[in-house]
């Protein structure tokens, strides 16, 4: 029982990161119908920026906020300078995917060149404390991360449903042309969408770094795959789905790796991969997503 509780919390701890990154993916997908394969590397890059602030003596919470602000700027600029030139949401998704893969390479290698490929040490954001839950020692870190995730979900729910900006974001997603005619500044809205996603990604990055107690250039790659899996499971157009999907993927991976010997830690990625294939076969729109009707 103690081991089980431990594994559940380990799974949740990993799942929170996937959920936050999946949230970033979903925000971009909702705003522009596109997938950003550089989302994870963007998160890694902004985490290095946070680390630079931290190294200069800025407290961690301020460094995180600063990194999120910088991330917002990078995301918005990427949209304005690059994605728009490819036609934005109306452009060819294939070309945009290739461009985001190009960004992936530049950010990954660029971070290595700027900050060095060796992992840099980072303190744990919520400290090293532990709480006893059902006989298992649960680190305060997990509870803190779950709290942050809950705040993010509530915040984004309010943003999308209760603010004018959220309304604009939803309008642009549903029909760009009509939204433009109704007076929504489409370009600015989409820039904000990409900026928000990168800012959320920065949070995912700093939390990952704080969990690993280090930051290195390849830390977000596996997380990105899990985040895509989470978004597929939850539905690409549902923020709630992304969060639930992330937590499920984290839990399932941890429990399968822990209890099924054939898979073991070497094949950590397999359960998530199989889950995605099953979801695509059985319920392609995901748990919370809305089914799309294709029109020519």
């Amino acid at each position: 029982m103690q081991l089980f509780v431990q594994r559940v919390f380990d799974g949740l701890q990993a799942g929170v990161i996937y959920a936050i990154l999946a949230l970033a993916i979903v925000v971009i997908f909702r705003a522009s119908g596109l997938l950003n394969f550089a989302q994870g590397e963007l998160a890694m890059f902004t985490t290095f920026i946070a680390w630079t602030f931290l190294d200069a003596g800025v407290p961690w919470w301020a460094a995180t906020i600063l990194a999120a602000v910088v991330g917002f700027g990078i995301g918005a600029l990427l949209y304005r300078l690059l994605i728009v030139r490819l036609g934005g949401p109306a452009g060819n998704p294939l070309a945009i995917v290739i461009v985001t893969i190009g960004l992936f390479l530049i950010l990954n290698d660029g971070a290595g060149i700027i900050w060095g490929a060796n992992p840099a040490k980072v303190p744990r954001v919520f400290g090293d404390g532990r709480v006893e839950v059902l006989g298992a020692g649960i680190s305060v870190q997990v509870l803190g991360l779950l709290g942050v995730l809950a705040l993010l979900v509530i915040g984004f729910g309010l943003l999308f449903q209760r603010t004018k900006l959220g309304l604009a974001l939803r309008a642009v997603t549903s029909n760009q042309e009509s939204a433009g005619l109704a007076g929504v500044k489409v370009m600015t809205t989409l820039m904000i969408g990409w900026g928000l996603a990168s800012a959320i990604g920065a949070l995912a990055g700093t939390f990952t770094a704080s969990q690993n107690a280090s930051v290195d250039t390849n830390m977000m790659q596996v997380a990105l795959i899990y985040a895509f899996a989470a978004a597929t499971l939850g539905g690409f157009d549902s923020p709630l789905g992304a969060v639930v999907g992330g937590l499920i993927i984290g839990l399932v991976s941890e429990l399968v790796v822990g209890y099924v010997d054939v898979i073991g830690p070497d094949l950590r990625l397999l359960p998530g991969f199989v889950l995605v294939l099953v979801v695509l076969l059985v319920r392609p729109q995901g748990l919370f997503g809305s089914a799309q009707v294709a029109r020519a």
Binding site: G102, F104, L105, I106, D109
Partner: peptide, 13 residues
């Protein structure tokens, strides 16, 4: 890798 990334983006543009 940076070179490859720049190449991918330039080709697309």
């Amino acid at each position: 890798q940076v070179v490859f990334g720049v190449v991918l983006i330039l080709v697309m543009l």
